[in-house]
Design a binder for these strands. Structure first.
Length: 578
RNA sequence: GGUCCCGUGGUGUAGCCUGGCCAAACACGCGGCCCUGUCAAGGCCGAGAGCGCCGGUUCGAAUCCGGUCGGGACCGCCA
């Protein structure tokens, strides 16, 4: 018998009683009682207890790989272990062979051990032996399989797109790959198959999907990795309502398949601007309320100079109530202020607090009303430029929810951010696109394009789950005249457009169907499903914040000959004089 | 590009603020011995770090200061 046909350690049950088996696995734990020794044998499917009595020397240690022959037996009455899935039975060994010995691992292979993450990443193959991580990977597999079944059932065709693409100066920074055959020229790795999927629509595929790897050379966060996996979808002759229905159906199916849970559809929709105002983010977590209010107008004449000066500079004053927050210590408030300052705020005010005596009764009442504050509540107040105030309030709102345990953890809170807006203001106050330059405006807002572009709604949408942006997309522009107008408003030159999007625009001259789509980040989806706030928990081999693979030791220098072949010369960074 | 947090045996922590009582403590793990029903097995014994690295202050540094490396969180960035 080989290990392939052998039963799994973790799969044995009382119904296997009496069965002669051969098991392969790792020694998870050993309990030596002198005359009898118990071994918990582990494989991907779980643990089973092996009983060893008088079969000679059994010098097995933790993490040894062994083969055990024996008989599945019901445990003696009273010695069943209800904490183990295999706890009703045990395997009485008749033979044990050590296949491979093992050094003591650098950390204990146990779910509750909280070893340093760098160490876990270096020995990721040991980390994955921990049942929790192995189960997360399996869950991820089942989610992806469910997605494939659903997309296939709806007649979407999976088409693979190239990994070596043309670079784009727009959007995220590209990872580039040198061309050996074309000195000085480079490919770019895909940030997403965006243009290719639109070309597939021109090609008449109609319904396309792909579970695609995408790479973005940007600085990392707790919910961002360099190499992301996304479900990429595009379809022809569709409206946003079709996309909503498709994706709501998809998540319903996945939740039912994988978690056995019915989720209610359709999902609620929230206007992007409303989300930024009320929740301080474009991906609100509505498993807790803590709604933010604006009190800018009520404080125009206030005597509280810190607030007044922010307003005079064109900023806003925002606030929200911390339920029962009057019990917060000065120390805790200082910590919150530190968080606010860390996010770039000038400061944090609270009521009741030192600012009270500079404000009129009317102003205080307005703030209490806007925050919806009760008698025991404390109100947090931030005054700053609008975007900064939103960021800071969003951050504080999340922090308060965590600290005061206001999150309803049993809830799956799906929602659409819709509508979004076609244009945004960049740091220099210049107009730029909100989603991407092919996003279609709302037909009824066309008259605003020239005069009030910021008010033009976009046929773009994000799907948010428990505060994670799990997908986003849009209906694309397919009319050349409209596309040209949008480029014009964005101030893009004809040459720039030709160089970057020429192939797409040319394709559109050969009969383009109206089309739209969406991309869903599988990594963030898995974060929401598993309830982790660390994206590395749902990736088999993640990189660090500084893009390093601690296990492989990548990136690493390459041989000069290899560089020469690629016509590349390395210029070491200049160390700045200190 | 910026701000902040962390770095003590194999692992996780305590000690650091308020320098000497620390040739560093506790738990787990590891090694040996005992033990026929444990399952975080138990009992006894034992080994294992000079406190990420470099430099400074001091009679004296894990503890204070500067730099540096590594990890993490956040702002910017991520169409």
């Amino acid at each position: 018998m080989s290990g392939f046909s052998a039963p799994h350690c973790g799969s044995l049950r009382a119904s296997d009683d009496g069965r002669e088996v051969e098991l392969y696995g790792w020694v998870a734990r050993r309990r030596d009682h002198g005359g009898v020794t118990f071994i918990d044998l582990r494989d991907r499917w779980g643990l089973v207890q092996v009983v060893i009595r008088s079969i000679g020397e059994t010098e097995v240690r933790n993490e040894y790989v062994v083969r055990v022959k024996g008989k599945v037996t019901r445990r003696p009455g009273g010695s069943e272990n209800p904490k183990m899935a295999t706890g009703e039975i045990e395997v009485v060994a008749s033979d044990l062979e050590i296949i491979s010995e093992a050094k003591t691992p650098p950390f204990e292979i146990q779910d509750d051990v909280n070893a340093d993450e760098a160490l876990r990443l270096k020995y990721r193959y040991l980390d994955i032996r921990r049942p929790k991580l192995a189960q997360t990977l399996e869950l991820r597999h089942r989610v992806v399989q469910s997605i494939h079944r659903y997309m296939d059932a709806h007649e979407f065709m999976e088409v693979e797109t190239p990994m070596l693409l043309k670079g784009t100066p727009e959007g995220s920074r590209d990872f580039i790959v040198p061309s050996r055959l074309h000195p000085g020229e480079f490919f770019a790795l895909p940030q997403s198959p965006q243009q290719l999927k639109q070309l597939l629509m021109v090609a008449g595929i109609g319904r396309y999907y792909q579970i695609a790897r995408c790479l973005r050379d940007e600085d990392l966060r707790a919910d961002r990795v360099v190499e992301i996996t996304q479900l990429d979808v595009e379809m022809s002759f569709c409206t946003e309502e079709d996309v909503f229905t498709l994706i709501e159906g998809l998540w319903s199916k996945v939740w039912k398949d994988v978690l056995g849970i019915e989720i209610p559809t359709p999902f609620p929709r929230i206007d992007m601007q409303e989300s930024l105002l009320k929740y301080g983010t474009d991906k609100p977590d509505l498993r807790y309320s803590l709604e933010i209010g604006d009190v800018s107008d009520a404080l125009r004449e206030t005597g509280a100079t810190v607030l007044r000066s922010a307003l005079d500079a064109g900023g806003v004053v925002r606030c929200f109530a911390v339920p029962g927050g009057r019990d917060m210590s000065r120390r805790e408030l200082d910590e919150l202020a530190l968080i606010a300052k860390g996010a770039g705020a000038k400061g944090l005010a609270w009521i009741p607090g030192p600012l009270d005596r500079h404000m009129s009764e009317g102003e205080m009442a307005a703030i209490k009303a806007a925050a919806g504050a009760g008698a025991d509540d404390l109100i947090l107040v931030v005054a700053d430029r609008r975007r900064k105030a939103e960021t800071v309030m969003g951050l504080l709102r999340r922090e308060i929810a965590r600290r005061r345990k206001l999150i309803r953890h049993d809830e799956w809170n799906f929602l659409w951010i819709y509508p979004m807006y076609l244009f945004e203001e960049d740091d220099q106050g210049k107009l730029t696109y909100g989603h991407h330059p092919f996003t279609s405006p709302w037909p009824e807002d066309m008259h605003l394009l020239a005069e009030r572009p910021y008010e033009v709604r976009a046929r773009a949408y994000d799907c948010v789950l428990n505060g994670f942006e799990i997908s986003g997309g849009s209906i694309r522009i397919h009319q050349p005249e409209l596309q040209e107008r949008v480029f014009e408003i964005l101030g893009m030159s004809r040459e720039k457009i030709r160089a970057q999007f020429g192939h797409l625009l040319e394709a559109f001259e050969y009969g383009v169907p109206p089309h739209g789509g969406i991309a869903a980040g599988i990594d963030r989806l898995m974060m929401a499903i598993t309830g982790t706030d660390n994206i590395r928990d749902v990736v088999a081999f993640p990189k660090t914040q500084s893009h390093q693979d601690l296990m492989l030791g990548a990136p690493s220098p390459v041989d000069p000959a290899q560089l020469a072949e690629l016509h590349i010369q390395v210029v070491p960074p200049q160390k700045a004089p200190s």
